[in-house]
Amino acid sequence: MTLAVSPQARDALEAWLAQLSAVRGAAAATIRAYRADVVDFIAFMAVHRGGTEGLGPLMQVDVRDMRAWMAHARGQGASGRSLARKLSAVKSFYRWLAEREGVEATAVLSARAPRFDRKLPRPLSEEAARAMIDRVELQSETGWIAARDAAVVTLLYGCGLRISEALGLAGRDLPMGDSLRIRGKGGKERVVPVLPAARQAVERYLALCPFPVETDAPIFRGVRGGALNARVVQKVTEAARMQLGLPATATPHAMRHSFATHLLAAGGDLRAIQELLGHGSLSTTQAYTSVDGVHLMRVYEATHPKAR
């Protein structure tokens, strides 16, 4: 099947994406994913409904059309998770079309994504997390690089940062105090506490780093002075976890998962952890309750009036 998108449909798509970027502050990666998902949907509907041009195919979508599109996507190898993401993008586009063009969106908005098993986070134990930080520092014989890698991984575990957030820190964020203001996904800001160990790791790296601290330049530098690439951190942690005999799931992102899980195990409030992680929805953070279900049962048995 040859897929094509008419100029009118493409103009509508770009207008919607521009609004997402300008008004909602959607991240560039989100915009790219939404564009690809909705382009596939628009093109499929144009062909499925007989090659009609313009917005016509989008205004006439019914339940059978939605089923045909989802069957097509699955036939192209889309997983249940992937199809759910695609449907979410299409629904968002149709909500905009309904407001802007008066499109009847009931068939699209009532479509249900297939069920899929959510992959639960794979945190490290407290001992393994500490060992990972120590081992990462041993991967380079160059002092400032070793200190840099340890500082990055310490921030992931000590502050619950995404790797992109840690590498996005700039000179303006220094000197590092008791807290950091982080700009996360979708441009959302949050304040996270900085443990003394994390602050000290960063200060040690900065004292050894051969490149000057500049207000608008990233704190963490590559060997030639440019911004440190996330792949470098991934390779270093991969080498460290293999030396420690840890599973393949012991990635930089697992350090962030470990931060959340260990806070929960220590009695941390789920909504507070949601804020620290920068999750837009509590349901995302609630995945950690499945990870540490044993601890939650102990808390329940110790505190619930009817359990005592």
Rank of each mutant, 00 (worst) to 15 (best):
T2I: 15
S6F: 01
P7N: 00
L13P: 00
A15R: 07
S21L: 05
V23M: 03
R24C: 02
A26K: 08
T30S: 04
R32V: 10
R35D: 07
R35K: 12
D37G: 14
V39Q: 04
V39M: 07
V39T: 06
F41C: 06
I42Y: 13
I42N: 02
I42T: 07
A43L: 05
M45Y: 09
A46Q: 09
R49W: 03
G51D: 04
G51C: 05
E53M: 01
L55Y: 00
L55N: 00
Q60N: 00
V61P: 03
R64C: 04
D65F: 06
M66Q: 08
A68V: 03
W69K: 13
A71D: 11
R74L: 14
G75N: 05
S79W: 14
L83F: 12
K86I: 15
K86D: 15
K86F: 15
L87D: 13
L87R: 12
S88F: 15
A89Q: 14
S92G: 10
F93S: 07
R95Y: 01
A98N: 06
E99H: 08
E101W: 10
A105V: 06
V108P: 05
S110P: 00
A111F: 12
A111P: 02
R115Q: 15
F116D: 15
D117Q: 13
P121H: 10
L124V: 02
A129M: 13
M132V: 02
D134I: 07
D134L: 13
Q139D: 09
Q139F: 14
E141T: 06
E141F: 06
E141P: 11
T142M: 14
G143R: 14
G143L: 14
W144P: 03
A146S: 11
A147N: 05
D149R: 15
A150N: 07
V152P: 09
V153K: 10
V153E: 12
V153M: 13
L156D: 01
I163P: 00
S164C: 09
G168H: 13
G168P: 05
G171W: 05
M176H: 09
S179I: 13
S179G: 04
I182H: 11
G187I: 08
R190N: 02
R190E: 01
V194Q: 07
A197K: 14
R199W: 11
R199N: 13
A201H: 08
R204M: 04
A207C: 01
E214H: 10
E214N: 04
E214I: 06
T215V: 04
D216E: 15
D216W: 13
F220V: 07
R221V: 10
G226Y: 03
A227N: 14
V232P: 11
K235R: 14
K235F: 11
V236Q: 09
T237K: 14
A240T: 01
M242E: 09
L246G: 01
P247R: 15
A248G: 05
T249G: 02
A250D: 03
A250P: 01
T251S: 15
A254V: 07
R256T: 10
T261W: 04
H262Y: 08
A266L: 09
L270D: 05
E275N: 09
G280S: 04
G280M: 03
S281E: 05
T284R: 08
Y288K: 12
Y288D: 05
T289R: 07
D292P: 00
M297L: 00
R298I: 02
V299M: 04
Y300I: 00
Y300K: 06
A302D: 02
H304P: 01
A307H: 00
